[in-house]
Design a binder for these strands. Structure first.
Length: 179
DNA sequence: ATTGGGATCGTCT
DNA sequence: GACGATCCCAATA
């Protein structure tokens, strides 16, 4: 079943480990892409590595909204990354979906990813494989029939904490969750 | 297996 | 005007 608002409206430290093992689903006219989330990172309001650290802007506004919305941003001139907003309205926090295991729609993913064998194992690759772009920024994952996260009864008992990837500050924090 | 450079542009200083 | 919450390819070892 689809994750409800209450799941997201908690501290990202609580949300992140529970997102591991859940299923990201994107329904498109060509077909449905599904993947099991296996790597996430936390970005909170008072975190110098977070887009929200210097306050609300048009770009990061979704992170400051209610929990359970997709924050999809454009980066490095050519890639998109997807987060889910966490905590209540006014708090700029979220969880970056970094990687997932392809489950359904692998043919579409390969088509979108071209020659590469690496379909979903990275935030930019994941968005490309799932066909996620700026159009998906701001989608309510708790009500959308197009983009949402499902609980299919899988519980991840064992996971690893590491520093986050690709940041230059707060590198001591173990805010990356992998299983 | 690891390293280094290039692509490419929106966002914020 | 500088710099990314990245990725890919080529060169090195």
């Amino acid at each position: 079943m689809k994750l409800p608002r209450a799941f997201y409206e908690r501290s990202p430290l609580e949300v992140a480990p529970e997102l591991l093992g859940k299923f990201l689903v994107h329904v498109t006219p060509e077909g449905t892409a599904t993947g099991q989330i296996n790597e996430v990172e936390i970005y909170s309001q008072d975190d110098p590595a977070s887009h929200t650290f210097r306050g609300k802007t048009p770009r990061n506004a979704v992170m400051f909204g209610k929990g359970g919305f997709a924050y999809v941003y454009f980066t490095y001139g050519m890639y998109f990354c997807m987060n889910v907003s966490t905590e209540t309205e006014g708090i700029g926090s979220g969880v970056l979906i970094r990687s997932c295991i392809p489950v359904e729609g692998i043919g579409f993913m390969q088509q979108r990813r071209g020659k590469s064998v690496h379909l979903c194992d990275g935030p930019g690759k994941l968005c490309q494989a799932f066909g996620l772009t700026r159009e998906h920024n701001g989608i309510d994952l708790t009500t959308s029939a197009e983009l949402f996260i499902e609980d299919r009864g899988v519980q991840i008992e064992k996971y690893t904490l590491t520093p986050r990837i690709g940041i230059s500050v707060a590198t001591d924090k173990l805010w990356r969750f992998v299983f």
